[in-house]
């Protein structure tokens, strides 16, 4: 069944045809075309698109923070402490040191993205590596790697991260390392489970018959199939990662004041939560919205990337 229709306007139809052609003329065209088809599938899912647009907005916010933020996020104005929402010049109010909450949230987007990007790079890659090697090699390699994974899994994530941060010292980089170290084991589990099914497949047998070694099979044949489910999982886990980072910030072990990290902001606002609720609530809302956006996008990505549907 051909799954193509005419989307978009006349002007785009030339590009559209080039991308959707059943007979691409080069490797590049084929690759871009298959991306485009994934994009079309994703685009049909309104919730995923909603999540994606929030995240795009977040990225733009982070890039153009200096232009968009009305005030300096660090500038204190003790005369304008704890102003409520909608105050003159402080649309989302101000915190206990008179800093503009909106500006701090905008700059905080940078920190959030930084954490998210680094954890999203480290944890799944470690997990993918451990999981696929364990799954493909089997035997004692599998046993050792998976028992290590089990040990990491046996600790509650935040507690383990706390221990790491306590050992490494507080700070945003150490928080990232700590979160990554606690986040990889589930990915290793997923990657191993997928590898166990994939390694029995005929296409793996076929490439073995071409004389391919284990390294090539793992990197070129197993990874591409595991990566998509990991991407989905990472996107869905992103909310948890943001929360873990915020949790560390809240406990004073992540980003240090005066950094406008959202978790640290909640922590600061905690003292005034009853009388000046917005100080803690606004960064809380920001975390909520971004986590939700990642979850919505992850759900949509699952439809696009799930390798179980790719062959159909």
């Amino acid at each position: 069944m051909s799954q193509f229709d005419v989307t978009g306007t006349r002007a785009r139809s030339g590009w559209h045809d080039w991308l959707m052609t059943e007979t691409p003329r080069s490797r590049r065209q084929a690759r871009i075309g298959s991306f485009y088809q994934g994009w079309l599938t994703l685009r049909r899912n309104p919730m995923a698109m909603f999540g994606l647009s929030i995240l795009v907005f977040l990225v733009l916010l982070a890039i153009f923070a200096p232009l968009l933020a009305p005030k300096d996020p660090y500038a204190q104005d003790l005369g304008a402490r704890l102003l409520p929402l909608g105050s003159e010049g402080y649309p989302l109010g101000s915190d206990s040191l008179g800093r503009d909450i909106l500006s701090r949230l905008i700059y905080g987007a940078r920190i959030t993205l930084y954490i998210v990007a680094l954890v999203a790079l480290i944890a799944p890659i470690v997990g993918l590596f451990v999981g696929t090697v364990a799954g493909y090699a089997g035997g004692w390699v599998d046993t050792i790697l998976m028992r290590i994974t089990d040990i990491f899994l046996a600790f509650p994530r935040l507690v383990l991260a706390l221990a790491f941060v306590a050992a490494l010292g507080a700070g945003i980089e150490n928080a990232i390392i700590a979160i990554s170290l606690t986040a990889w084991p589930p990915y290793a589990r997923i990657a191993r489970a997928e590898t166990l099914t994939i390694r029995k497949a005929d296409y793996i047998a076929a490439v073995r018959l071409q004389g391919a070694g284990p390294l090539r099979i793992i990197t070129k044949h197993i990874w591409p199939l595991c990566i998509s489910s990991l991407i989905v999982r990472v996107t869905l886990d992103m909310a948890g990662i943001i929360l873990a980072a915020a949790g560390l910030g809240f406990l004073g072990l992540g980003a240090q004041p005066p950094s406008p990290e959202w978790g640290a902001m909640i922590s600061e606002g905690r003292r005034f939560i009853l009388d000046h609720w917005w100080v803690a609530t606004m960064p809380g809302l920001a975390i909520f919205i971004v986590s939700l956006a990642f979850n919505l996008l992850g759900d949509g990505m699952r439809d696009v990337l799930d390798p179980k549907d790719a062959g159909k």
């Binding site: 084929a30 044949h221 199939l225 790719a310």
Partner: peptide, 17 residues
């Protein structure tokens, strides 16, 4: 060797090329 099921013997993410 040529395998039985052509739906299972080609890598789903690899083009013919």
């Amino acid at each position: 060797m040529v395998f039985q099921d052509p739906y299972a013997s080609l890598h789903p993410r690899h083009s013919v090329d």
